[in-house]
Amino acid sequence: MTDDRTEMIDVGDDVRIAACRTGDGPAVLLSAGLGMPAATWQFSGLPAALVDAGFSVVTYSARGVSPSSAPPAPYSVHDIAADAAEVLDHYGVDEAVIVGYSMGCYVSQALLDVWGGTVRGLAMVAGLRSSTIGVVVNRMELELIETFGHVPASVSLFEQLMTTPSPSILKDDTQVANWRAMLDGASDEAWTSIDGLHGCTRASYDWMSAGEPTVERLEAITCPTLVVGFGDDVYFPATGSAEAASHIPNATWTLLDGPGHGGLIFDPEHRATAAVTEFCRSL
């Protein structure tokens, strides 16, 4: 699924990033999670809600994610953020609200380091303070890639089943079977090549292993900030993200009970979408 307005933007070093800008008004940049093509945002309803609220929305697929280029690994979070900065510059954006989901929260923080424009506000959904489970999963994937050259589809499916829905869904075998049918093969289709999976996973693992975000990084975020956590998120447990948010000087913490890590897209009430849209309106 690719938006027909998508264009390939040359960000240097023979890397081209697939990006799209829709709507009119102040810009909002959406930085997606690990292996999440830009078109996936549509399932959250967030781009449409923001456009309806009077914003223009910039989405992009990170390097390594289809259909963007996949240069050889490794990548860093700051490499991905630099690509996003080039996308903003391409569209002539010099002031924006930055929204991140999951790993996109890492990229959003790194954008504060590498982009020369003004960040009016920062919203981070299910991605501020990672868990030991996140580190273990990334390390497992890296070992599989570096040993066998790929991550078996059954492994990717199991990871997604165990982390994306809420625990209550995992107790219902009928719902698990439905999720299996929905998720099966999605991970393989997300990547431009194995270099993309390797590079982005390495970037994620290195960020977490370095203890990011550090207290110093969080304290340096001075713009208005919204942090959203999901009550049953095992990748980014609410307690850790709430503690991290407490170090951001101008942050609002919002806990949404019930959803697992996939709550941005799969919460039937789309509460995270509503919270982010209202935050953007408030700036």
Rank of each mutant, 00 (worst) to 15 (best):
D267L: 01
A19K: 14
A19N: 14
R5D: 10
D24A: 13
A32S: 15
Y60G: 05
H78G: 03
I145H: 09
A38M: 13
R139V: 00
E7T: 11
Y106C: 12
S168G: 01
P71R: 10
L112S: 13
F158R: 14
E278Y: 02
A19E: 13
P213Q: 08
D52E: 15
R180C: 01
E189S: 09
L142T: 08
G127K: 01
A62I: 01
G121L: 06
S31R: 03
R281N: 08
R217V: 13
T132Q: 11
E212C: 12
L170W: 06
I17C: 14
G240H: 06
C200P: 07
V93E: 10
T59Y: 05
G35L: 02
Q175V: 04
M36L: 07
E216N: 06
A32M: 14
A274R: 05
E95C: 00
E278S: 12
H150N: 06
A245T: 13
L142K: 11
A32H: 11
P224K: 09
F55S: 06
A272Y: 11
G12D: 12
T22L: 11
T174N: 09
A38D: 06
S168H: 07
I221S: 12
G64T: 03
E95H: 03
E143R: 07
T2D: 08
L283M: 14
A85S: 14
T163D: 07
A181Y: 03
S130I: 00
A244F: 04
T277Q: 02
D206Q: 12
M1H: 14
G149K: 07
A251S: 15
M208Q: 15
Q160V: 00
S209M: 14
S66V: 01
W179T: 05
A123M: 01
A181T: 11
A251G: 12
F158N: 13
I169G: 02
S187W: 05
V155A: 06
T201N: 15
T118G: 03
A245D: 10
A73R: 12
G229C: 12
A245Q: 08
P249D: 14
G127W: 02
A245R: 08
G45L: 08
V151Q: 10
G196I: 09
E269D: 14
H150C: 03
A186K: 12
G211P: 14
A110D: 15
V176M: 07
F148C: 02
F279R: 02
M36V: 14
A275E: 15
M103A: 10
A123Y: 04
P249N: 13
S209I: 05
D52C: 00
A238G: 08
C223R: 09
G117Q: 05
A62N: 13
D13W: 02
